[in-house]
C-alpha cells in the first residue's frame, strides 16, 4: 500500500470510528464540569440548565457505550485532496477539543462589547421599563441595576428627572467609542439564550483621564448622580458624575438575563 493510501485509510477510520464519540465526550465533560463548578451560566441562559445537564448525562452513557462497542465497517478510499482536507479538519477539531477542556472558562470581554456597540439593542423595552418604574417608585434608587438605568435613560434624558436620584451600579469598564478619553461605560452583557446573543448595555460615566486609573474589563461599583454630559462628543446626553468608584470582584452571575 502506498503511504498516501495508508494515511487516507487511517484518517477515514479515525473520523468514522472515534471523531463523534470523542467530540461528544469533550462536550459532555465540559458541560458537566461547568455545571458542577457553577459556571454553566457563563455560556448559556439558566432556563436551559436542567435540559442541558440531563442530555449531558444521557450523552455520557452513550459515549461510554460507544467506547465499549465493537464495530466493523468498510473504510472508503479517498483522493489526495479529500485526505488533506480531512487532515486539516482533524487538526482543527483536536485544537478546539483540547481548548474546550483546558482553557479556563470566562466571560466575554470588552472586545466584544465594543464590537457589538453598547446599548445598540438587547433590552425588551416594555417589561424592563415597567420594572424600572416600579423600582423608582420605592425611592430606593441604589436598588436599580445597570439594566434598569439603561432602560430609564432610553426613555428619558430629561436632567430634571434624575436630579435627586443617586445611582449605584456595578459592571465592567468599557470605553465610549465616541469619546474614549473622558467617558466610559459601566457595562453588563444581557444574555437571551447563550453567550452568542450577548448584547452589551452600559451606563455612561464622565471621568476625564479614567484610563490612567482603571483598566478596560476591570469590575467597578460607581456611585454618583446623572448630569448632562460635559463631553460634546459622547454617545449619550447624560452621564454619571462619579462620587465614588470602588474596584469590586466579578459577580458570580456576570451576565444579566
Amino acid at each position: 500500500m502506498l503511504p498516501d493510501a495508508k494515511l487516507s485509510g487511517a484518517l477515514r477510520y479515525w473520523a468514522e470510528r472515534w471523531q463523534g464519540v470523542l467530540l461528544s465526550l469533550v462536550v459532555v465533560v465540559a458541560t458537566l464540569w461547568l455545571a458542577l463548578s457553577g459556571q454553566l451560566g457563563l455560556y448559556i441562559h439558566p432556563r436551559y440548565f436542567v435540559f442541558t445537564i440531563v442530555m449531558a448525562v444521557i450523552g455520557l452513557v452513550l459515549v461510554g457505550a460507544g467506547f465499549a462497542r465493537r464495530r466493523s465497517f468498510e473504510v472508503e478510499r479517498t483522493g489526495r485532496v479529500a485526505t488533506a482536507l480531512t487532515g486539516v479538519g482533524v487538526v482543527l477539531l483536536v485544537i478546539m477539543g483540547v481548548a474546550m477542556v483546558v482553557v479556563p472558562p470566562t466571560t466575554l470581554t470588552s472586545a466584544t462589547a465594543t464590537q457589538r456597540e453598547v446599548n445598540s439593542g438587547g433590552l425588551g423595552t416594555e417589561d424592563d421599563a415597567d420594572q424600572a418604574a416600579a423600582l423608582i417608585g420605592t425611592g430606593d434608587f441604589e436598588q436599580l441595576s445597570v439594566r434598569e438605568w439603561v432602560s430609564l435613560l432610553a426613555q428619558s434624558s430629561d436632567p430634571g428627572f434624575y436630579a435627586d436620584k443617586t445611582a449605584q451600579v456595578t459592571g465592567f469598564v468599557t470605553p465610549d467609542t465616541k469619546d474614549s478619553e473622558n467617558v466610559f461605560y459601566v457595562a453588563r452583557f444581557v444574555v437571551t439564550c447563550c453567550a452568542v446573543d450577548a448584547q452589551p448595555i452600559g451606563v455612561p460615566v464622565y471621568l476625564p483621564g479614567w484610563q490612567s486609573e482603571y483598566e478596560i474589563d476591570d469590575w467597578v461599583q460607581v456611585t454618583g448622580r446623572f448630569d448632562p454630559s460635559v463631553s460634546a462628543a459622547a454617545s449619550d446626553p447624560l452621564a454619571i458624575t462619579p462620587v465614588e468608584i470602588l474596584p469590586v470582584d466579578q459577580p458570580k452571575d456576570p451576565y444579566v438575563y
Binding site: 435540559f51 442541558t52 442530555m55 482553557v103 466575554l108 472586545a111
Partner: peptide, 25 residues
C-alpha cells in the same frame, strides 16, 4: 489569551454547549 481569541473560544463554546443537547435529543 488575547481578548479576541478568548472571546472567539467563549462564543464557539457557547454555541456548542447550547446545541449539543438538541443534537443528542
Amino acid at each position: 489569551l488575547p481578548d479576541r481569541v478568548q472571546d472567539t473560544l467563549t462564543l464557539a463554546m457557547s454555541v456548542i454547549i447550547e446545541s449539543v443537547p438538541f443534537v443528542f435529543l
